Simulated scan of single mutants.
Amino acid sequence: MNRRDLDRQEARAGALLQHAAAYEAARDKLVEIYEAGDRIRSQYAIRSALVHARRAGAAGSPPSSPAGALAPLKGWAMPLYLIAIFDAQSRRPAGATVDHARPLFRVGNGQAGWADLLPAITQTAPERAGMRRQAVHALNLLEREHLAVIAGRGGVAGRYDRVQFLDETGDGTRHRWLRRYSIPRSDSVGDVVHLPKAFFLNGWVHVLTVAEITTYLMILDLQARYPESGRDGVFKVAAQRVDRYGVRRDVYATHRQLAGYGLIRRLDDPARSPDGRIIKRSSPRYTRQPYRFRTFDSGFDRPALTIVSAHLRSQRSG
């Protein structure tokens, strides 16, 4: 890893630790949702469409998935969308269509608002204004990617208190009310991947980057599609990764961090170094083999902020 990347990792670790209290407060609110919910689940179903390439980009650019489109961007759009799914599935049964009734902020003694479910890491003063900016930016991105509908026109007071989340397809060609988010049924095998409850309750949804989440969901989907590959691991060559998932090289590179956090195991080609460079060729016709991966749900059983910040800082000393 070059010096610039090491400095970036060090800065990220420092920001996590600086705002540890804010991350913990947001995590506590997710625990409240889980404990107050009518549906106690060990896993939460995410439609694979979230990471499946849905369309060609403008002017012949490569295909894009909803997650892949959000992966390079800063902000809380992807975490907020997954939190909305967690919230819905904690309250409603499989098959139910969900009207998301949360306001932007908690009102009185009512339920937490969307902004309250994100870490308050803004430098804007007063803090509430910064929290609003974070949440509004996330919701606007989700609407742009056809994953949410915001009520009313721009500038209308209270419009962010009436947000309807849409299904994971991000299909902007279908009428939005036909795409209101519904909870996948138990017979949706092959069409969904599952995130364990610890992904939310131990703060991983807040601490992982959007690119890391996207790469993890892609690997989960590959495992669901190719269950027979459990021992040898799953993989996608570069062209298939872009065509099928809309995942570019810089997003895919986050598999190194996921392995460092203990969330996946990377089964390396012995002819390659950890950073991907070829260190020996078994023959003049040697073909570089793709990385293979297996996920570990148990990796989420540890506190995200502690694990991630420690690993990021270890990169420099390592």
Rank of each mutant, 00 (worst) to 15 (best):
I33E: 09
A36Y: 04
D38A: 14
D38N: 11
I40P: 00
R41E: 14
S42N: 11
Y44H: 06
Y44S: 02
I46V: 15
R47T: 01
S48H: 01
S48A: 15
S48V: 02
S48E: 04
L50M: 08
L50G: 08
L50E: 09
L50T: 04
V51F: 03
V51M: 05
H52A: 13
H52C: 09
A56I: 10
A56H: 10
A56K: 12
A56L: 13
G57P: 03
A58Q: 15
G60M: 06
S61H: 09
P62I: 06
P63K: 02
S64D: 06
S64N: 00
A67F: 08
L70M: 13
L70Q: 04
L70I: 05
A71W: 05
P72D: 09
K74V: 07
K74G: 15
G75I: 04
G75S: 10
G75T: 06
W76L: 01
A77L: 05
M78V: 09
P79V: 02
P79W: 00
Y81F: 13
Y81V: 00
Y81T: 03
I83V: 15
I85Q: 15
F86K: 04
F86L: 13
D87C: 02
A88E: 11
A88K: 05
S90M: 04
S90I: 05
S90Y: 01
R91I: 00
R92D: 11
R92K: 10
A94E: 15
A94V: 04
G95W: 12
A96G: 04
T97R: 15
D99H: 07
H100N: 13
H100V: 03
H100L: 06
H100F: 15
H100T: 00
A101L: 14
A101V: 11
R102T: 00
R102I: 01
L104A: 04
F105L: 11
R106G: 08
R106C: 09
G108T: 01
G108P: 14
G110E: 13
W114C: 00
W114P: 00
A115D: 07
A115W: 03
D116E: 12
L118M: 10
L118I: 12
L118V: 06
P119W: 06
P119H: 05
T122R: 07
Q123F: 01
Q123S: 11
Q123D: 13
Q123R: 11
P126F: 05
P126Y: 03
E127Q: 14
E127M: 13
E127T: 07
A129V: 10
G130S: 08
M131N: 14
M131I: 00
R132L: 06
R132W: 00
R133Q: 15
